[in-house]
Design a protein around this nucleic acid. Structure first.
Lengths: 218, 218
DNA sequence: CTCTGTGAACCACTTCACAGCA
DNA sequence: TGCTGTGAAGTGGTTCACAGAG
């Protein structure tokens, strides 16, 4: 599995995904006015594993106090910083179809510090328009310029499957280092670029498999 | 990890997700007129692992011919059947917001044998309308009736986070056994129900972590 | 001779269990 | 005493390597 260095250590993606979960839990606790929480407390309340929480956090430092637990606000801030959320992250969405427009207007983004700076498309009649929430649709050829000028961090791909690889290539050429892909099929990227795919077909087919093969079994 | 029985055997979700991938590869080969393919051939062409392909398939039977490989059409049919794709699968989308509408019109569905029978919402002005591609929007209270009458297999959740748990509960009560959730946060379902979540926040935060923590490393 | 199917070896992630600090 | 941080044990998934079928 692909790993990323953190200090001198190696951290798996499963761990980093859980950090997001922990952060969300802490935000909920903080909103309820809770000041400190133990790994066991977190685990019970949110159906997690206490040892795993401690292990995950241990990769990044010693944030807890023995006999007490963790200061909620403190750990929250640390997690934010570890996840790189202590600044605004700029996103472009490539492909202003149904999905692209829906994503651009997704309220969760702004809330979480992600800033959708533009939608990109090649269709004449779309360029110059705006999404419902006001994200401008610009021509795809402006990608490179945008990345440089606006310091775009993440590209979201919502283009048809047969255009996906060339779009990825263009994004990489423009200097993008993190891509979230919604097209089916697997794409190639150079090793310095992080690609995550949300493949609806695979997901649906997994559900179908479950339905076809009945019983859960531990 | 949660498992599902197949024959007398246990199959992990990682395996079933790969079956989808294999199916897609085979469809591409079949479309190119290829008749047989070896595990090695598949692996090389699609950047997979040959031993893993054989292991995955072995859970479900002996589909290959030693010295030859697999008959493409034959294996395709087997995989379809294993994944439960040898029939039309009915889907309802709960929540006719931007995302729900985008999903309803997603072209990949029809192509893959998934049939979106309705969008559900509670908003007066939406009920009675149609999505661009003609999926009717009905009132959420018709869920139970729909599940029974139309034999709906999968519910997709595209409702705001704060309505997610109650919507899941309603879907479960209506008899749904497989749910795909797009809201952030974790939801509880009884053990006979399969829930898959596509959590955009976690995915974006993982990308952010990668950007913040630089170098890939093996 | 080729390629499958599979036990054995390997590796990674999770969980346990406890030493030691507050 | 309560809880963290962590080595050790356990679990499960992947890769290797080969016997044996075609």
């Amino acid at each position: 599995m692909e790993r990323v260095r953190a200090g001198g250590d190696q951290v798996s993606e499963l761990t980093t995904a859980r950090l997001s979960v922990y952060l969300r839990c802490l935000e909920s606790l903080d909103a309820s006015g809770v000041n400190t929480v133990s790994s066991q407390g977190l685990a019970q309340q949110f159906a997690l594993n206490a040892a795993q929480i401690r292990k995950d956090l241990a990769h990044f430092g010693e944030f807890g106090i023995r006999g007490v637990g963790y200061y909620v606000k403190d750990l929250k801030r640390h997690l934010r910083q570890i996840l790189g959320l202590d600044r605004s992250i700029k996103v472009v969405i490539i492909g202003a179809g149904n999905l692209g427009l829906a994503l651009a207007d997704y309220a969760g983004f702004r809330q979480d510090g992600f800033d959708v700076v533009a939608l990109l498309d090649t269709a004449r009649d779309k360029v110059g328009q705006y999404s419902r929430s006001g994200v401008p649709i610009r021509h795809a050829k402006e990608l490179e310029w945008l990345v440089e000028r606006e310091k775009v961090d993440i590209a979201v791909l919502s283009v048809p499957a047969d255009a996906a690889q060339e779009t990825v290539d263009a994004a990489v050429a423009a200097g993008i280092r993190a891509i979230l892909n919604f097209s089916p099929g697997s794409l190639r990227v150079p090793p310095h670029v992080k690609l995550k795919s949300m493949d609806l077909t695979i997901t649906f087919e997994s559900l179908s498999f479950f339905l076809a093969n009945g019983h859960i079994d531990a």
